[in-house]
């Protein structure tokens, strides 16, 4: 019995420590971002560009593929029902709204968490284990500014890019299905244009940038808190993916509620 209480206590204590670490890390990162605004030239541009290439450009194929399949599946599944009422053209509205508002950013963010959140954690985690972070610290270089900021920036910028690619591919997938059902392309794109609009699209892109920030934050934090054990880097990479997806889901839920309350 006492053992059980002790376990619960230990878990709670461990959980609190994790939350405290995350908050401290978020604060440090915010400070580093603030100092970057004051002195933009202190950014390691080369590292940021490399991280952007890895997270963004090299992620394009998979984002496009998943987006395309998503559009295809959405169209097939909804067309069957809508067809019974002879309004399969509304598949276009469904896909446009679904992708731009919700699925585009969400699915892309999950891809980013799996591809890049884990990579951030593994890269920074390996450096932690090799004492490279200690070396930075004693060289008077701030590891957050040096390692975290370039990757966070890359994630924030890569997300909208990947999201747009996924959305365009998704729309193309939907069109393919409707073409098979003899709906003219012009009608399809007219409906897409009517259903979306600048506001919807930018809302989605803003969301995707936020998700990018979360994935970067969780991934880098996991890397910085890597334990110096044999499985340390593996554990960090796993917790970057899991933590990243949880952060995305929670943020998405909160945003959905906020949008509903604001009526947008």
């Amino acid at each position: 019995m006492a053992g059980m209480f002790q376990k619960v206590g230990e878990y709670a204590h461990g959980g609190m420590a994790a939350v405290r670490d995350a908050l401290a890390f978020t604060g440090e990162t915010a400070c580093a971002f603030a100092s970057l605004v004051v002195r933009p030239r202190s950014l390691r541009l080369k590292d940021a560009a490399l991280a952007f290439q890895r997270a963004g450009c090299e992620g394009l194929p998979i984002a496009t593929l998943i987006g395309f399949l998503l559009g295809l599946i959405l169209a097939f599944e909804s067309a069957a029902s809508l067809r019974q009422f002879g309004v399969e053209i509304y598949v276009a509205d469904l896909i446009a709204i679904g992708l731009f508002r919700e699925l585009g950013p969400l699915v892309t963010a999950i891809i980013l968490a799996g591809r890049s959140g884990s990579a951030f954690a593994a890269e920074i985690g390996t450096m932690t284990v090799n004492e490279e972070l200690d070396a930075l610290t004693t060289m008077n270089l701030d590891p957050v500014k040096f390692l975290v900021l370039p990757r966070m920036l890359a994630a924030i910028l890569a997300m909208p890019l990947l999201t747009i690619a996924a959305e365009i591919a998704g729309l193309a997938g939907g069109m393919l299905v409707l073409q098979m059902m003899d709906v003219p392309a012009v009608a399809y794109w007219t409906h897409v244009a009517d259903a979306s609009g600048v506001f919807t699209i930018s809302l989605g892109l803003g969301k995707s940038a936020l998700f990018g920030l979360l994935v970067g934050l969780v991934g880098c934090s996991a890397g910085m808190h890597t334990r110096k054990t044999a499985d340390g880097v593996g554990v960090a990479a796993t917790s970057a993916v899991v933590g990243g997806i949880i952060a995305i889901a929670v943020a998405d839920g909160l945003l959905a509620v906020a949008c509903y309350m604001l009526g947008v």
């Binding site: 390996t126 450096m127 090799n130 004492e131 490279e132 200690d134 070396a135 004693t138 060289m139 008077n140």
Partner: peptide
């Protein structure tokens, strides 16, 4: 901190070169 770090150089047991 910054003043002290500016005056010291460190070689770690593992080298800790940036990989």
């Amino acid at each position: 901190r910054r003043e002290i770090l500016a005056k010291i150089g460190v070689m770690y047991q593992s080298g800790a070169l940036f990989g």
